[in-house]
């Protein structure tokens, strides 16, 4: 058999496509031809080593960069921030409604900062006017200012939160 033919069979072996008949012919030749046997060994050795080559890795933090570029973490942060804000809002509302502390605190502030009181009075007039425009039922009722402001801000907050979540859902799809 010619060396060229042997080289072809060696390549076939490396391809994993050699037939049993050709394998027999090849082995027979390699047993008697040291030159081809050496060539075969070298071919097998140089390609077999490729399987054991080191695997390289990108720098630590690679996953985080991909995840944040995809916006997955941002979505998660928004959801988390939404929960915290709603919780905070409820806690503040309960605190303001049931604790005597805010009233005491406001009294102290009023005595310490008269300018602030004047500002509050002016603001109350503006809010009262707005309230009368927004809610005719409670117009001229200064007691309704707090709940109305709360309601307006709650609606505004829920609207913004809803829009944000809607945007994030769109982004996800």
């Amino acid at each position: 058999m010619k060396h060229r033919e042997i080289a072809r069979l060696i390549q076939k072996t490396l391809d994993g496509e050699i037939s049993p008949r050709d394998k027999g012919r090849l082995d027979k030749h390699l047993a008697v031809c040291p030159e081809c046997a050496e060539f075969s060994r070298e071919m097998v050795h140089s390609t077999a080593a490729l399987r054991k080559l080191t695997e390289f890795y990108p720098q630590p933090g690679f996953n985080d960069r991909v995840i944040s570029r995809l916006g997955l973490r941002r979505r998660f942060a928004w959801a988390k921030a939404g929960i915290v804000l709603v919780g905070g809002w409820l806690a503040a509302a309960l605190f303001a409604a049931y604790s005597p502390l805010p009233a005491e605190l406001l009294g102290k502030i009023a005595t310490s900062f008269p300018a602030l009181v004047r500002f509050y009075d002016n603001a109350a007039i503006v809010v009262s006017s707005l309230t009368s425009l927004l809610t005719p039922v409670v117009k001229n009722s200064i007691d309704a200012t707090g709940p109305v402001i709360g309601a307006v801000f709650s609606v505004l907050f829920i609207y913004i939160l809803g829009k944000t979540l809607q945007k994030e859902a769109k982004c996800r799809t």
Binding site: F56, Y57, F62, I67, L70
Partner: peptide
């Protein structure tokens, strides 16, 4: 469906092979 954990797992499974090949 936007599961971050699944993306992390896919990254961990293939980043070494892909990076080595490109490198």
């Amino acid at each position: 469906s936007g599961d971050e954990g699944a993306c992390q797992r896919i990254l961990n499974l293939y980043k070494g092979r892909i990076f080595s090949y490109i490198y």
